[in-house]
Design a protein around this nucleic acid. Sequence first.
DNA 1: GCGCCCTATTGGCGCCCCGTCAAGAAGTCT
DNA 2: AGACTTCTTGACGGGGCGCCAATAGGGCGC
Lengths: 195, 195
Amino acid sequence: MEPEARRDQILVCARRIFGERPYGAVSLADVAREAGVARGLVGHYFGGKRELYLEVVREMIAVPDSVLDRLPKGSLEERVSGVVDRFLTVVSRHRGIWLVTVDVMSHGHDPDIEAVMRESEEVTVDQLLRALDIDPDAEGIESLRAMSRAFGSMARAATNEWLNRGTLTRDQTVCLLERTLLLIVLDLYPACRDD
Amino acid sequence: MEPEARRDQILVCARRIFGERPYGAVSLADVAREAGVARGLVGHYFGGKRELYLEVVREMIAVPDSVLDRLPKGSLEERVSGVVDRFLTVVSRHRGIWLVTVDVMSHGHDPDIEAVMRESEEVTVDQLLRALDIDPDAEGIESLRAMSRAFGSMARAATNEWLNRGTLTRDQTVCLLERTLLLIVLDLYPACRDD
DNA sequence: GCGCCCTATTGGCGCCCCGTCAAGAAGTCT
DNA sequence: AGACTTCTTGACGGGGCGCCAATAGGGCGC
């Protein structure tokens, strides 16, 4: 079998298993058995359990570009509404993935995990700013980016409340996210620029 | 040495070590050596590595009641302002602790960890509702609690931006949290009650 | 067609770590 | 003092990970 295909095959199995139980409860033997290969082969392709896990995480937290496709280009309010709606639709379609995303926050001070999360966070913020048509080099943009990251954290938590706990309806989630995002962009961000 | 003191001694060492590096990189031998006892004794007092960790987490995420003490009892705006300010003050004073709190989110689908986090989350929401003088049995309170949990997530992220990354000033953090909390309590919560 | 080489693949070795446990030390009560 | 309880220790067995030498298997030159 071609190396590429084998690598993918192992990765697919690893993603499923890491999604089912916590890191410590997963053994490379499990992944190898599932993929129908020897234990050592996993090490050959990925280097170790840790690296395999990083690869899985990297794949899971990647936000598909489809979140940005064909977004309405009207007023800021319409763009905010569009991006929130699109976000929730995409997430609910891949709900399994985002479950894990939240879990992944873990792993203590692990610098590698943190780096992967940071990187994905930056990409997400970039996408958000582009969707809202905000100049990424404007003055005080760092504050807006920081607030957007905090907003992202809230968006994940709210989505969790909606999809996994059923404590919010979709409409309530939409409303919470839209209003908060508007608050940040229209009120808080301009205030920051005046500092 | 008295059992109580010994237990505390081990717990103190465990807290320090678990705070320095991720769960997987901590061995009971480390903790035992640090505490000057045999490895088996840790198991005797706590049952196992996992239980020891849970105990550490439980202690770390406990929000001191002082967050609620002597809060202003004026208008809703004043109470919101008071609770946000108090929150940030307390957190900045114990910054080491909350660092870990964020990290701890991890550990995949671990049900025990999740239970501990959930419990602490509920306590925090209870404190918040009491501080804002909101009837905990009012209609639609579950939606408010859900939004408060999402807000809590944002509060942690924003505090992280302020204290650990320096991307927000304290004033900006205060502003973000106050306005968002007001939005939830004044606008979104009443809208939920009309469902 | 045959042998060669390079790469994928395997299974075992050594190490570390955890949970358990029986034995020893220390303190207390009668 | 003796016995009982509790604290404490060090060792045993099991399991998982990283490493590595040995094997297989397919493409390439001859």
